[in-house]
Every structure is written in C-alpha cells, then in structure tokens.
Nucleic acid binder design. Structure first.
Lengths: 236, 236
DNA sequence: TTACAGTCACCTGTTAACAGTTGACGCAAC
DNA sequence: GTTGCGTCAACTGTTAACAGGTGACTGTAA
C-alpha cells in the first residue's frame, strides 16, 4: 500500500467539489458574468442539496468571483480589467512575502522553491504546460509559506485557484517557456544571494510580463465577453 | 415614520449576528486561542441552529480568526505578532489603494475622506473615542473605495472588523487624539495635492505609529495571554 | 391603453434530523 | 503494568422541509 498524501484524510467534502466546478465555470465564462446564482437551481444542477452549494458560494464570494447584491448572489466573471487588478494586488502582497521570506531566510530554507524550479525545468523541456503551470504556482506559494505570515498565505490561497484556472485556460497557447523559467531562476537566485531589493524588482518585472501574456491570451480567447452583461441564467 | 437606513432591507441575517459576537469574543480573548469551536456547542450557546454558526465560522476563517485543522475549527486569537502581521499586510494593500485612488482622482472625489475627517475632528474635540475610531476606519475605507478595485476593498473589509474591535478594545486607554488627527490630515492633503509618493510615506509613518500604540495597548491589556495555549473549551 | 391590485412562483434564511467518521474511554488479556 | 480491542459519545457533512419576503405576471377597471 502506498499512501501518497499523508496530511489530508480521505476528505473530499462535497462543498469543495462544487466550489471547484463552479469556479472553473465562472472563470471560463460558462456561467455568464452577471448571472443570478440561485441556490436551488445550482443544487439541482449539481445534484446535491443546498448546503454544499451555499458553502461554495460563500467561498467564491471571498475569492471575488461571486458578488452579493440585495442578498442575492451573482457571478462576477473575469474581465481583462479584473486580471490587471489581480496582478496589481498580487504584486503588492507577493513583494511583501518575498521581503519577509528573505528576512527569515536565516533559519528558513528555499528547498521548496528549488524543488518547484526543478519541476518547472523538466516540464519546460518536455513542453508539459499543465505541469509547468502547477510548479509555477508552487514556486510562488513557497514565498508566501516562507514569509511566516499565515494571513499573507491566506490571501494568496484566496486568489491562487483563480490564477491556476487562468493559467490552465490560457496555456492552450503555444508559448516558449524558456523566458519564464529564466525569470523565476533570476528571482530566486537574487533573493538567495541576499539582494532582496533587486529580487523584488525582478519579481515585479516577472509579474508584469505574466500579466501582459495573460491579458492578451484572455482577450484573444473571448473577444465577445462584455464587462457586465445585464443578466442571464446558467446554461445547463 | 423615519427610515434612517434606506439601502439595506430590514436584513439582519442571524449568521451576521453570530459572526460579530464570535469575532468579538475571539479577539477579546473570551474564547481562548486554540479552543475547539464545535458547531453544536456554539449553536446551543447562541441559541440558534448549526446553519448560522457554520456561516459565521466560514466567514471568520476567511478573516484569519479561525483556523481549520483536520476538518475541525479552532479559535486563532490575536497575539501581538498577529497585530504586527496585520499592519504589514495593511501597509502593502493600503499603499496600493492610495496610489490607485490618486490615479483616478481626476474623476473621483475625496468627499468621503473629507467627511470622515470632519467627523474625526469633532470626535477628537469631544474626546469621543468610539466615534473617532469609527470615523478613522471610514477615512481609510474611502481610499479603498476610491481605488476602484473591488478586490482591494474586499481584502480591507476582510480585516476591517478586526481592526475595529482592536481599536474599540484598546481605546480604553486615555490617549491624545491630536497627533493621530494631524497625521490623517497630512495624508489626505498631500494626496489631494498630487504628491502621492509623499502621501504614501505619510501613510506608512501613520500606520507604524498606530501599530506601535496597538501593540503596547494589547500587551498591557493581556499580559498573560500566550501565543498558543494547547487546547480549551469556550468558557460559557 | 394604462394603471393598479391581487396572486403566485421563487428564493433566501433557518431549522431539525440522518449518516459516516473520528477520537476517547474503559475493560480485558497478556 | 501495559497493550490491544471494543464500545460509545461527539462532531462534521449532508439533506429535506418550513417560514418569510420579494418580484413578476396577469387580470381588471378607469
């Protein structure tokens, strides 16, 4: 018997499943922005009761993918403006995380970041985009983990699934992963060398590049998606 | 008939009430950090069913006041380290908010901030600490609102109640509100004059001062509160 | 044709109950 | 005395049902 995951018990709460599926549907635009997300309808559509749906909506609300207006839940969707906003916030918090991680670097170790980087290198060589994206996020997560700030990690985890789905969707594009990899190497090595201000600048440049690619990919993906269609119902 | 609040319908969801009461109890230390927050026990204690309690726990989890470990909820409490952490995060996001607000200042107006400032001045003159704290938070909220970033406002609203309770608790102290008021005036006037870099520096200095006072007040308040007592049950 | 009123369907907030699981306590065997 | 096992209580995840309220639709009257 081989148990790959030791931490989480068999645990796959139904609410988590609904959260993930609904999140993907909203980001991908399967649920049009502005659509009213009524609990009974969603519950029937996912073939569960209202409880897990309620949990999912609460969670997605804290992720910013669902907004509540007059006690009703509506899909928020992701416009290119939202992506710009997300990257601006990420720059602010990840910069802080990197600085804090650096401050604690004495007793902390960059092992996780190095592991992620190795995985990224292998994925890049094999052009395995999904694996690369996964390792990419793990790399950045390691900064938050190393920062020692639980709340900073919480904020990141709040938006990390959105970035994950975005990366996954936009990675249909045929991009050369080389520059991205080099950028990550530069950030980590500069930080490990103790030149944290320089590393922050590298990070900002990296995020700017990622944002630009993301915005282009997204606007190419759904040219017709408006900022806020008046209303709508979920397709099926 | 006089209706003071026009926006929110009679709306006072039971879950919101539980959230507020539980939040206050955790921050004040009435619920010891590390205590297991079992739904049935809390539900009976608040004389409601598990539903609203569940909502409250989910909300407080996103605020960082409750942590989930092996599917169970535990009170996180607030140590002085947490306060330092909170102010670090706040500096990062509020700085961004101030910059974004400044960028949009052409079509935006600082009316809300000015109103809050006027209220603060009156409260300071009358030494009404609670009113001052309230207006203080409204002042800062206006920056996030003016930033035009919904998610930035969301992050602030996530932690704003914690700051509110902290201010309320620590304001038992007899402090001169003059310097705080002057600090707020300086931030706003500098920003309105378009010298945003200078305003950011003012803001950072202001937050540092606030943090210092908060840490002192808190450590004076509960000298005996440890970082993580092993476990415990809620008192009553 | 338009304005108003009544009806009706839907949705949210809330509650109680059921099922599976986990952790603890106690008892018995070695 | 210690170790292993069985029982049991408590908790989380989940579901179905009830109550109040809101908005839309329709029919009627001016």
């Amino acid at each position: 018997m081989t148990w790959s995951s030791l931490e989480p018990v068999p645990a796959t709460a139904l609410g988590d499943v609904i959260t993930e599926r609904l999140r993907r549907m909203i980001i991908a635009g399967d649920v049009p922005a502005g659509a009213h997300l009524a609990e009974p309808r969603l519950a029937e559509s996912f073939d569960v009761s209202r409880g897990p749906v309620r949990d999912a909506l609460r969670r997605l609300e804290s992720e910013g993918l669902v907004v509540v207006r007059r006690r009703k839940m509506f899909a928020a969707g992701l416009t290119t403006d939202d992506v710009v906003e997300l990257y601006a916030i990420r720059e602010a918090v990840e910069t802080l995380a990197l600085r804090l991680a650096h401050d604690r670097a004495a007793d902390a170790d960059w092992g996780e970041a190095l592991d992620a980087l190795a995985t990224m290198r292998r994925a890049a060589d094999a052009a395995r985009y999904a694996d690369y994206a996964h390792a990419d996020l793990a790399f950045h997560t390691s900064f938050y983990a190393l920062s020692g700030s639980r709340r900073l990690l919480d904020i990141w985890r709040q938006y990390e699934p959105t970035f994950a789905v975005l990366l996954e969707i936009t990675n249909a594009e045929d991009v050369d992963l080389g520059p991205s990899l080099a950028s990550h190497v530069a950030i980590l090595e500069t930080a490990r060398a103790g030149r944290v201000d320089e590393a922050v600048v590298e990070l900002q440049g990296h995020l700017l590049g990622a944002r630009t690619r993301m915005v282009h990919a997204l606007s190419r993906l759904d040219t017709g998606r408006a900022a806020t269609p008046p209303d709508g119902e979920i397709p099926a």
